[in-house]
Amino acid sequence: MIVANNGPAEAAFEPLLQLEMEMGTFISEWQHCDHLSSYLARIISHNRTDPVRHSNFFSSALNELLEVSFRSGASSGQVVLAIFRHGPVEQIKITFPCAAEQIPFYREAVSKVDRSDARARYLDSISTDMAPSRDSILLDLAINFDASIRFEEGPSPAVTLVVDLPLEGLVS
């Protein structure tokens, strides 16, 4: 695992940290999702207005994204996580390997988040699904965390989710 301070810069978003991990190591232990999200949330929240609550909120969102990566089914390649900040917004950019035939499902799930029936579909998923689908997790982020989500396709079979979280405004 490498923790570096200078991830790839993006327009106006200042990099806070980047972490790369072998997929095999990552998925060796389910608890990694919880531990990483709690730990990283605390680091990036320390200079927010209310660090404790920001960290709690952020950890919730990050954990869901780590869990999605964990469940991608891939056991080789790397999971790459980068966190950026721009004003009151944190951006999580997470890339994980995934079988080529799976990629359209992620693209589809992300595109559905912006549709006008997003809320109705989220409520429907809570009300009928036994376990949360990929779709309903992304809807949860959009609806409960006011996230905006973008999809990018990697060079090798990989998926990148770019999630903007305006938590500073939500928390305080």
């Binding site: 709690s38 950890s59 919730s60 954990n63 809570i126 036994m130 376990a131 949360p132 309903s136």
Partner: peptide, 17 residues
Amino acid sequence: LIQMNNTAFHAFVRVAL
């Protein structure tokens, strides 16, 4: 409740509903 993932949320909510 400090943290709860969607998996747990769905499961508990299912019972209540």
